[in-house]
Write a protein that binds this DNA or RNA. Structure first.
Lengths: 172, 172
DNA sequence: ACGGGCATGTAAGCGGTTACATGATTCG
DNA sequence: CGAATCATGTAACCGCTTACATGCCCGT
């Protein structure tokens, strides 16, 4: 259901094609939710059939720009106001730590080193993006402000995990 | 693939039934990876067919205890040593922050308040568990030490998100 | 003895990934 | 003009969830 409402939310900012949405996802939302392009295209098709979005523009090479309908807006607001929150958390990378006892210490340290770097780089990448938003490079619309909050979560999670990797390697 | 290797890893600690594994998952691993019981039972069946695990004990009311085979051990070690790490991160709860601009400020604050509490509670729950492990209540085997690292990641992520919710509510 | 939770499963369906396919532009 | 990349999709498959089904054991 998450992708569904993500699409409705993104289309609330204005009409967009599948490709547009794919790009916008990469910028910020991908920090907290992945979305592949086939899934986006098929989901847009479903939303269209259900009348929650509609094609309002056709451009070059088969480009179809979708707009959210009133029904779509209503469903999105309903979800935001009353939809249950799913707190499920998934991280394959962390599963492995549970099985460190099956690995040699040097391999574990090597793994943790790489993980630390990965998370630190991600955190830095998101932090740069956040700083650009703070400088007003994307304007100061409510949308940008909200996205600023989301990206901050990305920064903090990745920072926390980089520190965790550091801490863990001292314990091995 | 993650569940598959989680099962092989858990069975490396000793024979266990589907239910046993379900319980052990809840204790620690569920902080970083969810696993429902139907999925566990079906995956154990598949692993059995492939010869990576085998039924070594049959008990009351159809209980089947599985053990990891040599082939299973080998496949697990191969994964731990050379398997690619998937860093995908999923959190429905954070998606919503991207759409705060569609909500009334009071609703947003209310949502963030609840989120903060949720994450703080989770962090505290995992921290209690970690403290018990540090006190040696579960022994001091390599397995317990590794699980200690995993649970620490759970603590830190949830702490980070509780702080994020606090920070975000000041920015609304 | 029987009600509630323990324990084990099966089946259907959806969400999501991977692989494949194709035409349209842009750039060197 | 050819290569790379942009942009849009389709199909098959798999992981995972939800709902259903069932028998056993324990406490009252």
């Amino acid at each position: 259901m998450s992708l569904r409402y993500s699409l409705l939310g993104l289309l609330s900012e204005g009409p967009a094609s599948g490709y547009d949405i794919s790009q916008r996802f990469k910028e910020t939302l991908s920090a907290v939710w992945p979305a592949s392009h086939p899934q986006i295209y098929t989901e847009l098709g479903k939303l269209d059939k259900e009348g929650l979005v509609e094609v309002t523009e056709k451009g070059a090479r088969g480009r179809k720009a979708y707009s959210i309908t009133d029904q779509g807006k209503q469903e999105l607001k309903e979800w935001l106001a009353h939809g249950a929150v799913d707190h499920t958390f998934r991280s394959e990378a962390l599963i492995r730590s549970y099985f460190f006892w099956l690995m040699d210490a040097p391999d574990v340290l090597h793994y943790l080193e790489a993980e630390k770097k990965f998370f630190a780089d991600k955190a830095a990448e998101y932090a740069r993006y956040a700083a650009a938003k703070d400088r007003g490079e994307f304007g100061n619309t409510p949308q940008v402000k909200a996205a600023r909050l989301t990206i901050e979560a990305g920064v903090r999670i990745n920072q926390a995990l980089a520190e965790w990797a550091e801490w863990a390697s001292k314990r091995v």
